[in-house]
């Protein structure tokens, strides 16, 4: 079980919890504004972009090649960016806070 917080662009903080699927699905299920997930989670649309804290980024790990290439399409991307459809919901992310990028 993981409890995480999304901070939207409007600075709203949304606490959500889940134990399976991807972080994008969890965000969509909870109506987190700014996480659209237009491609359904196959790393093709870059509408599930989040920023992590440097410490959390290290724990979650760097994106795979396709994902980091897709991130280049987004001007808001930083070195701590991830597409959250590629992050599984697991104990590992419990307690983390993510900032919605776009």
């Amino acid at each position: 079980m993981a409890k995480v917080i999304f901070i939207t662009q409007a600075n709203e903080s949304v606490e959500v919890e889940g134990d399976s699927g991807s972080l994008m699905e969890l965000a969509v299920q909870n109506g987190v504004y700014g996480i659209d997930g237009d491609c359904g989670g196959v790393c093709s649309c870059a509408t599930c972009h989040i920023h992590l804290s440097p410490e959390d980024f290290d724990k979650v790990g760097a994106p795979a090649e396709t994902e980091s290439d897709m991130l280049e399409l987004d001007d808001n991307a930083t070195e701590y960016s991830r597409l959250c459809c590629q992050i599984p919901v697991s104990d590992e992310i419990d307690g983390m806070t993510f900032t919605v990028a776009g």
Binding site: E25, V28, Q29, N30, G31, C39, G40, G41, V42
Partner: peptide, 28 residues
Amino acid sequence: HRPPLSKKTLQTTECVPTPLKAEKAYAD
């Protein structure tokens, strides 16, 4: 979502659709 229908949805036997939005998001 329609694109997964011919891909993931067809491949998995539980075969659940991927909702575009959560049900409660419409009410919200």
